[in-house]
Each structure stands twice: as C-alpha cells, then as structure tokens.
Nucleic acid binder design. Structure first.
Lengths: 229, 229
DNA sequence: ATATGTGAACCCATTCACAGCG
DNA sequence: CGCTGTGAATGGGTTCACATAT
C-alpha cells in the first residue's frame, strides 16, 4: 500500500505550492524593510525574535512566515541578512521589478508619486493619468501625466503589474473598467467604494475613511481583545 | 431556586459587553456608507443580502455584524434604513462626533484635509501641524496649520479623539510620543514604521507601500484561496 | 544552552443551517 | 414562503511546545 507522498514537490518550485495568505505577504514585505535597514546599518545576521520585536509580532510568527520563502536560518547566528533579503526579493517581486500605473494625480496620487520617486527601489510608477487639463502634459515627481482616455493606448505600449486608483469615488468603477480592459491584473483601490471586477483581477482596498472610523471607535472602546492597544 | 440571570444587562448598555473585532467595525462603517447612499436615493428599507452584494460580503456576515449594534430587522421588509443608520451612528461615533488632529501636511495630509473638509460629516480635523515654516500659519482646506512644537499646547485647549500621523518615517515615533504625551488615545499611523506606544493607546497602521507590494504579489500569484480576486 | 523548523493545539472569524416570525 | 437572528460547525491563522542542530 502506497502511503508515501505521491510526488515530493521540488523545493525550488518557482510557484509556491500552497497559497500564501495576504497577512503573511504583508508581514514578509515589512520584514524586508526591517532587514534592509539592518543591512545598511552594517549588521550581517539577525534573530527571529529581533525581527519580531521591531514588527511587533512573535518570533514564532516570523519563523512561520519565513517558511513560505524557503528558510535558511542558523541555530547559532540566526538569519544571514543578505541571503534572506535575496530570498525575499525573489519571493515578493516580479523578476523585472514592479511596474505601476497611477490614475488620479490629486493629493493622494502625488503622495504616491513622491513615495516611489523614480530611481531607488525596484518598484516604479511608469505612467500617471488624470482628467484635469491643468495637470495633463505636466511632469509631476518626474512622471508625465497623460489624459485618462489614453489608458488603453499607453498601457498597451508599457504594460504594468499593478494600477493604483486614486480618483474620487464616483469615477473609480469606470477607471477600474478601463484598467481591466487594458489588461491590468491587480489593482490598489484607494477610493471609498468596492469595485466590480472579473475574478481574474486582484483588488486590494485601502480605505482611509474607514481606518479613521476604526481608530475613533477604539479610542472609546479601548482594547479589541488582543494584547495590542 | 434562582436560575434566572443575576442581573439582566440593559439592552441600552452604552459599552458593548463583548469586544468587537476590528474587521467587524470596519464593515459596519462601510455598511453605514451604503445605507447613507440608499437613504439619500429615497429607499426606506433594505435586505441583508442587498447590503452584502454591494460590500461583497455574504448576507450571513452582514446579519452577524449587525448583531453587535442591536438589530431591528423585519422578516418581510428587511431593515428600516433610517433606524439602522441611527443605531450605527450611536454605535460607531462618539456622542460629540469625532474630533481629529493631523500631523504632517504633505500630500497625504492634504488629501485627508480635503476628504474631511469641514462642515459635512460628524468627523472633522480640528487641528493640523507641520514643521515646514512655509506651511505654518497658513490655512489649508480651511484648517489652520500650527508648528509641531505646539502639539501639547493646542491639544490641551482643543482635545481630539484621534490623531493622524502623516509625517516621514524618521519623525513618526517622535510625533507619536508628543501626541501620547498630549493625551491622545488613538492614532492612525500612515508612516511605514511601527510605533512604540503605551498599551493604553490604540494604533491603526495603514501602510500604502505594503499595500502595493501585496497587490504586486497577487498580480503574479493569482488567487489567495478565497473566492475574491 | 539557545535558536530554528514545524506538527499539533488553540482560537477566532466566517459560514452553515435552521428555528422563529411576519 | 422568505428573511431575520443565532447556535453549531467549519476553516484558517496564530501560538505552543518540542525535536533538532550547533
């Protein structure tokens, strides 16, 4: 009787065999930041409990998350920072880096253009769109602003991995439709509404209004059950 | 023999007896938006499955969440919108509305000032702070900008429920310390770092960089296991 | 001795499914 | 009958605890 595993999966499997939870991906991205900082301050190794302290997580959580990327910790020295950074880059990023588009160059959009100012990271905003004639044609934080009508055209020439929707609520769905038609497979939606998209497209919602309402609620009701706050 | 409940808790208990999860609070805040829209379009009642469709949740989820606010659904007509809005306001908001402070009037800060432009909602930014002399003294979106050094002074005069931290990473912890010292009990942190605060203070982190990294990850890895995306 | 990697236990959020009611 | 309200079951994420390695 065959009780052994049918086909032992290769450890170098390019596609992670199990689905990784959104929470784990978020924490891994944060660990990477912590490691980058430690690295640039001259450290070469780090322990899981050190990462945990900075991120306020537990060491078990950190080790569990790192299992997803294929781990290489050493019981004495902890993790070798440079190697782990390499693993995380490979796990989190597309091979060519992350190419982004931005729709809506209001205050929120400009904040993102500044944050991803071209040059430094492997993530860059390749195209920006707005409907305001006063903005179209200008370069903001080094990024040329195109009219929203040209989304399809521009993204056909320079495809992107992710598009950010930073337009007022009433235009968000229309913009999403155009982006999906242009072949974008992942959206970051900053408008305070939920988008209707085909289920082949990933949507990440960030809703600042709700974040504040939540903060206001817990200002009065204290703890939410966990140790935090 | 006394088998009845010792003291039947009043249904008008101002403090919800059980801790409400952060996810539930976020969804309730979103339901409120949906109800406001339905109300202003003339509807008077709504079914849980209608709310669910708009929010893409399930009807069971909606009903479960609504249990937290003390519910008043009717098996035939569904929920009476005006009444439910009243319940949600009472549950989510402080009696005096939500008073906010903003530290950091960059692009992100200005986006929030615009969003909460004074007048409309029961949530308003009462005070804004920045360290840039070019901004101090000016009024932006109707809000006067004070120097960050005056946080303690200003918040002593006009206390707030929530403070938003929208400053560069390297200043976030210092600003948080000042806000905590000024008596703020709840923070919305938009800086890409985790804050060290006493555990009597609630912190809500919104990290746009990580949100994009997550979107980029699922652009390549498709589904994350649930039906969505 | 101390830290990693991981099965197992635990806990909490969501979903199921059904009683109750108009 | 269809919808609400809710105990019970399910599922997934976190924590525990220990085998293992140095």
């Amino acid at each position: 009787m065959m009780t052994t595993l049918p086909i032992p999966p290769l450890s170098t499997d390019p596609t992670p065999s199990r689905a990784i939870s959104a929470r784990t991906v978020a924490r891994l991205a944060f660990y990477r930041r912590v490691l980058l900082r430690a690295h640039s301050s001259g450290r070469t190794t780090i322990f899981s409990h050190e990462i945990a302290d900075i991120c306020d997580a537990t060491s078990a959580q950190v080790r569990r998350d790192l299992m997803a990327v294929g781990t290489l910790g050493h019981p004495i020295h902890g993790y070798e920072i440079e190697g782990l950074l390499g693993q995380l880059d490979q796990f989190l990023d597309a091979p060519h880096g992350v190419r982004m588009a931005l729709v809506g160059v209001g205050n929120l959009g400009r904040a993102l253009l500044t944050y991803f100012a071209r040059g430094r990271s492997p993530m860059a905003i390749e195209a920006a769109f707005d409907s305001d004639p006063a903005k179209i044609g200008r370069a903001i934080s080094g990024c040329h602003v195109e009219p929203v009508e040209r989304i399809g055209e521009v993204l056909a020439a320079t495809p992107v991995d992710v598009a950010v929707i930073a337009v007022p609520e009433e235009f968000a769905q229309h913009v999403a439709d155009q982006l999906v038609a242009a072949g974008v497979r992942s959206l970051l939606n900053l408008a305070p509404t939920r988008l209707r998209v085909p289920d082949t497209v990933f949507v990440e919602d960030v809703d600042l209004g709700i974040a504040i309402e939540r903060a206001a609620f817990y200002a009065r009701h204290g703890d939410k059950g966990d140790g935090r706050a």
